[in-house]
């Protein structure tokens, strides 16, 4: 187990370092922040001063060396835009994203597993066909379109919900519902497919033959064995959400990490870009370990 964790940590650390190197140099290719932050008629002296303060005068590899040295001491640099430590800015945004992702994924997981199992129980039945149809539509819908249609209908049309921003519980309803749809459709289909296989296996037939209640056969006997591929998909979807739901965050004015990442690129706030990549990568690393532990808990044959 410890050996497994150590190996995972090392391989994740390597790919994280590669990622940081790539983003460091690529993002600096997008341009010089001086032109963006100082007025067009700023004097050469002011420009020089700005570059000096933010360490933009050194050659790229020197800048990179400085950055890495600071990073080893857990100093993520300062945001140019906000004049605050980059890590602080990112953590604030990440907490929002984490809440959004957690609420959505818990709901999606629960709903998709229950409905998908019920659909698999009577394949080809009315409930199955309705569920399959709607999950297909859900998996096919572009989230930005759903978001703006939802705003037109529920926020502007009926006036029930606020259009964007944060503050009250009501502000969460639209973003969560819009984010809900696609993962729900995808996961429901995986649950259904996996459950069909599990339900036609010999041990479920045995359970039914000896008179176990149908509900128990679905949710106890079959589900546990059908969960492995489902967990993989849930993990993929959750990872995508931790990276920030850029579109939904943009439309609903939600101060999450996806929007922060894109804005920081456009504002050439390199320290924030790098910090947000590292924070999300770390969160995804932790989540992947949890998922591996879940595999082991569900299937005793899996040992690390």
């Amino acid at each position: 187990m410890q050996k497994f964790l150590a190996r995972r940590a090392v391989s994740s650390a390597i790919s994280l370092v590669l990622l940081v190197i790539a983003v460091f140099f690529l993002s600096r290719l997008t341009g010089d922040p001086t032109d963006l932050y100082l007025p067009v008629d700023a004097s050469a002296e002011a420009r020089e001063n700005f570059r000096q303060i933010h360490g933009l005068n050194d050659p790229l590899y020197v800048q990179f060396g400085h950055y890495m040295l600071d990073l080893v001491q857990l100093d993520f640099g300062d945001s140019i835009r906000r004049a605050r430590p980059a890590l602080e800015v990112v953590t604030e945004a990440f907490v929002w994203t984490l809440q959004l992702a957690a609420i959505t994924m818990v709901g999606v997981t629960f709903a998709a597993i229950v409905l998908g199992s019920l659909a698999a129980f009577r394949v080809g039945g009315l409930f199955d066909r309705v569920a399959t149809f709607f999950s297909l539509i859900g998996a096919s819908a572009p989230d930005f379109w759903i978001a703006i249609v939802a705003i037109v209908v529920f926020a502007v049309g009926f006036g029930w919900l606020p259009t964007s921003g944060t503050g009250t519980v009501w502000h969460w309803i639209l973003p969560v519902s819009v984010l809900f749809i696609r993962p729900f459709g995808l996961i429901l289909q995986v649950v259904r497919g996996s459950m069909i296989t599990a339900l036609s296996s010999a041990y479920v037939k045995t359970a039914r033959a000896k008179g176990v209640a149908p509900r128990a056969t679905i949710f106890v006997h079959a589900l546990r064995n059908a969960m492995l591929p489902v967990i993989t998909v849930i993990g993929d979807q959750a990872a995508g959400m931790l990276n920030g739901a850029v579109v939904v965050e943009t439309i609903f004015g939600f101060p999450g990490v996806g929007k922060l990442m894109i804005d920081s690129i456009l504002q050439r706030d390199f320290a924030v870009v790098l910090a947000s990549i590292m924070v999300t990568a770390f969160a995804i690393f932790l989540m992947n370990i949890l998922i591996d532990l879940a595999y082991g808990a569900l299937d005793p044959r899996i040992r690390y």
Binding site: N243, V246, G258, M261
Partner: peptide
């Protein structure tokens, strides 16, 4: 993050 790559 694929969207980030795209933006850059």
């Amino acid at each position: 993050p694929s969207l980030l790559l795209a933006v850059i």
